[in-house]
């Protein structure tokens, strides 16, 4: 999410040159702790605050207010001619960790599976690692199979998956082109299998989607309010779409 926060801050510097916003990374926990310590005005978080975090903040005299600023969904993609239409998260996890190596093991054609991923420095890579490969389990240390292709750009992923019948890949929903087929996914084998879209990502039925939040101390006022209003405006949400996230309006 740090990329998005940086993009907003940079764009806002042109809209409102008198306000200078500095962004630093480190993860959602870092931001929430800093808000609790009153060292920052806005905390970016790619997860909702936990109950104990809210209590700690209130004990410190901070009243965190949550604003949903964008949605984030990952589409799992294959070649349009691949007969597979849907997979469970467990199957996707087994494919990318190297336990399943041929499409016929999950009911497809007899072809080797070629795994395609974003580079390790991409936020999408980490989100996919945590929520799909490790299925959200913190103690799980499963990682990508060593033969996974690590491509430096989204164009690379859609074009390799779009022309190679063996390939399976993933990317942020906003980057997906019509040249590939998006799979319907389900968190458990009984279903329901849901395809990724703006709606299913925002209403929570698509299993690999999350909301991105900003937290402020109390109701935002002054320049903070202006900044947040701008982020939620069409102009701010355009940046969301440009970075491959899901705009909320």
């Amino acid at each position: 999410m740090v990329n998005l926060a940086l993009a907003w801050a940079e764009a806002y510097a042109e809209v409102q040159p008198t306000v200078s916003i500095s962004v630093s990374g480190g993860g959602s926990g870092t931001g929430i702790t800093a808000l609790t310590d009153k060292t920052i005005q806005i905390a970016n978080a790619s997860r909702a605050m936990k109950q104990e975090e809210i209590e700690t903040a209130q004990a410190n005299g901070v009243d965190p207010k949550e604003i949903t600023v964008a949605g984030d969904a990952i589409a799992v993609i294959v070649h349009p001619d691949n007969p597979i239409d849907q997979l469970t998260l467990q199957q996707v996890s087994d494919i990318f960790s190297g336990k399943i190596n041929n499409w016929k093991e999950i009911g497809g054609e007899d072809r080797p599976i070629v795994r395609v991923s974003r580079e390790t420095n991409s936020g999408t890579h980490v989100f996919f690692l945590e929520s799909v490969i490790r299925l959200g389990r913190n103690d799980d240390k499963t990682i990508f199979s060593a033969d996974t292709l690590l491509l430096p750009s989204s164009e690379g992923i859609t074009s390799e998956v779009g022309q190679n019948l063996n390939a399976i890949g993933y990317d942020g929903l906003g980057y997906i082109t019509p040249a590939v087929k998006m799979l319907n996914l389900a968190a458990n084998p009984a279903g329901p299998f849901v395809g990724p879209s703006k709606e299913t990502a925002l209403n929570g039925t698509y299993p690999i989607a999350r909301d991105l939040y900003m937290y402020t101390d109390g109701e935002p006022t002054g320049w903070v309010k202006e900044y947040l209003d701008w982020i939620l405006s069409a102009e701010g949400q355009e940046i969301v779409a440009k970075l491959g996230f899901v705009p909320i309006s």
Partner: peptide
């Protein structure tokens, strides 16, 4: 290389991927 050579190598040598 990405758009022309890689697909060519995949199909002529029958490899899982051309990259």
């Amino acid at each position: 290389g990405f758009l022309v050579l890689a697909p060519l190598i995949r199909t002529t040598l029958n490899l899982p991927t051309g990259l």
